[in-house]
Design a protein around this nucleic acid. Structure first.
Lengths: 333, 333
DNA sequence: CTGAAAGCGCTTACAG
DNA sequence: CTGAAAGCGCTTACAG
C-alpha cells in the first residue's frame, strides 16, 4: 500500500496496455509467453499488488464471510469457529467476526455485513431466526447454524436426550432433573430436549425438576446450582458442558462430591468435558461434520457450480466418563 | 445487494445530482433541510444502501482489522480476542480472522491482508516477529501483540516468575521445575521466565528440572507430564494454565494426587484456572488492560488524531488457589 | 446551497 | 495475440 504501484505503472513500465497486464495476471486470455514473462518480472520488480477495493468493485466478491456469534467464551463455540475457518480457508474465504449477545446489535451487524462487505453470512445467534436474518441480509446468502432449512442439518436432540435418560435410568436414577437452554431452539419454539424429557417423564407437568438458563455458560451453571442441589434430583441433564462445569465448580467450592451427590450429563463433548473433575459424561456432537456441512450449504449459495449437500441428521452419542454413577440410597452430602 | 439501488437511482428519483445525495448522507457539506429530508425519504423508499466496494475505493478505509492468531483452542486467546473485538467495536472496526499455526501460512495471510483489505493488523503469531510483520505488511500498520516496540506493552515475566518461585520456596519446595513455552518470547530470543528461573536456581545449568513445550496447549502439558513426574520435582511453574490443565488430566488419569504429589503454578489466570480440579494457583494477566492498550497503539497508527498511549508495564500477580501446598517429605504417590 | 465531471484501480466487453 | 475505452458506484475537488 505504501508505494501505490498500480496496474498502469506496470503497463507503462513495459509499454503494454493495462488489459494485457490484467490478463497476464488473471490468465483469462492467452498471452504470448514472452510478454507474460515480462509482466511477471515487472510485477516482481515494481512490487505491484492488485488493490483489494478495485478488484472487488469489479468481481463483486470480497472473499469474506461474516460470522455472527454470541460470545467467544464457550469452548464449543470457538472449536466450531476453528472448524468453520478451516473449511472456509479451503476456498480462500476468510471470516469477519461479529460478536454480540444483544439481538438488536446482531441485526445491525448483519445489515452492515450485507452492503457488499461479505459474500455470505453464517448466523450463529440464537436470538436471530433464519427468516429474519435472510430478510435483513437483502440478497446476501445467509446460513443459520443448525437452523437452516435448505439441506437442513438436524441434530436429533430428542434422541440424545432419550439416550441419556435411558442410561441414567439404568443406573437406578429416577429423580432426574433437566436444564433447558433457551438458546437450543429457534426463538419462540420449544427446546427439543425439554420436549423429549417431558415425554419420558412420569409427571411431565411437575416443574420441580425442570430448570432453565438464559445462556449456556459456566456462570449460568454456577448460578443455577444452588436451586438444583436443593431439589430432590440425584442426576441431571445439564444442558451443555459449560453449564455442567459451572455446577461442578459450585459443588467443589462447597465440598459436595460429584458424582456421588449428583450425576451430571453434559452436552457437546467440548474440550471442557475432559478438564472438569470429574471429567464429564456427555453427549458428543461431531463438530467437524457440523462445520463442514454448514459451510457446504453456504458455498452452494455463493458459488454457482457448488452443489447443495444432502440433508444431514446427527444423533448425539453418549460418552461415558466419571460424572455419573449408579443411584445411591444415601448420597454423601 | 439484490436490487442494485445506486446513488444515481436516488438522485434521478429526486431530480438532484449525485453529489447532493452523497453529501446529504455524509453530512460533509451544508444541504438545505428540505432537500436533505427528501433524500432521506427517497433512500428509505428505494432501499438504497451505500456500496461497500465503491465506498472503500474512495475512502481507502475498510473498517476491517486483520487478526492473526495461532489457534482458537486456548481459552486465553479467545478471551483476548473477545476483549480486542470489544475495543475495536467502539471505533466501528471489525476483525478479520486469520488462524494458522504455520509461520509460512501466517506470512502469506499477512501479505493477503495488506492489499487494502484491512486498515491495520494485529499479529498474535509467536512465529512472526515485529520487524518481519511490518516489512511484509508493506505500509499497513501492524501491532505485534506484547512485542511491539512503539509504546511497548511489557509483561514483566521475570517478576512474575520470581513471585511464584518465592511463594513455592516459602512453602518449603526446593526442587522446582519449570516448563518453558517457546511461544513466550520472540523467535530466537530466550524465554524471560526461563532466564529468571536460571538466575534464581542454585544450579542454573542443571537441565533435569527444565522442560520445554512447543505449544502452550493442554495436549502438550499432557505429553510432558510423564517426564515431569519422573523427575525429582515437587513443584512446577507450568508455563500457562492450559499446560497445567494437561498435567492435571494426566495425573487424574493415573490417580496421582495434585497438589499432594506436585504443586502446580499456572500462568494467565484464564477461565481454565477455575475449571481444573484442583483449581489452579496461577499468575494473573489482566486481559482487559492488555487488549485496550494494544488496540490504542493500533489506533494511533491508523487514525491521524489518535495519540500513542503511554508505555505500559504489567507485573503478573499471584492468585493462590488449590493446586499448591507446602512441601511434604513423603509425597503420596 | 448545488451540479457536472474527474478520479479511485481495477476488469471486461468491443474492436482489431 | 493485443489495445483503447467503458464501466463498477461511490467521493471530492472544481466551478458556479
Amino acid at each position: 500500500m505504501s508505494n501505490h504501484v498500480t496496474i498502469a505503472d506496470v503497463a507503462n513500465h513495459l509499454g503494454v496496455s493495462k488489459s494485457t497486464v490484467s490478463h497476464a495476471l488473471s490468465g483469462k486470455r492467452r498471452i504470448s509467453t514472452e510478454v507474460r514473462r515480462q509482466v511477471m518480472e515487472a510485477v516482481e520488480e515494481l512490487g505491484y499488488r492488485p488493490n483489494f477495493a478495485a478488484r472487488i468493485m469489479n468481481t463483486r466478491r470480497t472473499g469474506l464471510i461474516g460470522v455472527l456469534v454470541e460470545s467467544l467464551k464457550n469452548p464449543y463455540t470457538t472449536a466450531l469457529l476453528e472448524e468453520l475457518d478451516r473449511e472456509l480457508s479451503r476456498h480462500s474465504l476468510r471470516m469477519v467476526l461479529g460478536t454480540t449477545n444483544n439481538p438488536e446489535d446482531g441485526r445491525e451487524l448483519l445489515v452492515k455485513f450485507s452492503d457488499g462487505m461479505v459474500d455470505g453470512i453464517l448466523n450463529n445467534l440464537p436470538g436471530l431466526d433464519e427468516a429474519e436474518a435472510r430478510r435483513l441480509a437483502d440478497g446476501v446468502p445467509v446460513v443459520t447454524y443448525l437452523r437452516h432449512t435448505e439441506s437442513p442439518l438436524v441434530i436429533d436432540f430428542a434422541a440424545g436426550t432419550r439416550t441419556a435418560l435411558a442410561y441414567l435410568t439404568e443406573l437406578g436414577h429416577s429423580d432426574i432433573a433437566i436444564v433447558s437452554l433457551g438458546s437450543r431452539a429457534e426463538p419462540g419454539k420449544p427446546d427439543p430436549c425439554l420436549t423429549a424429557y417431558r415425554e419420558w417423564s412420569r409427571c411431565p407437568n411437575d416443574p420441580s425438576l425442570i430448570f432453565r438458563v438464559p445462556e449456556g455458560t459456566t456462570e449460568a451453571g454456577f448460578e443455577l446450582a444452588e436451586a438444583l442441589f436443593a431439589s430432590r434430583a440425584t442426576a441431571v441433564l445439564a444442558g451443555n458442558d459449560a453449564v455442567s462445569a459451572g455446577m461442578i465448580q459450585w459443588a467443589i467450592d462447597r465440598n459436595i462430591r460429584i458424582p456421588e451427590r449428583m450425576s451430571i450429563v453434559g452436552f457437546d463433548n467440548s474440550s471442557l468435558a475432559k478438564m472438569t473433575f470429574p471429567p464429564l459424561t456427555t453427549l458428543d456432537l461431531p463438530i467437524g461434520k457440523l462445520a463442514a456441512h454448514t459451510v457446504r450449504v453456504l458455498l452452494a449459495a455463493i458459488l454457482p457450480d457448488e452443489l447443495l449437500p444432502e440433508p444431514l441428521t446427527i444423533v448425539p452419542e453418549l460418552i461415558v466418563r466419571k460424572s455419573t454413577i449408579p443411584f445411591q440410597v444415601c448420597p454423601l452430602k
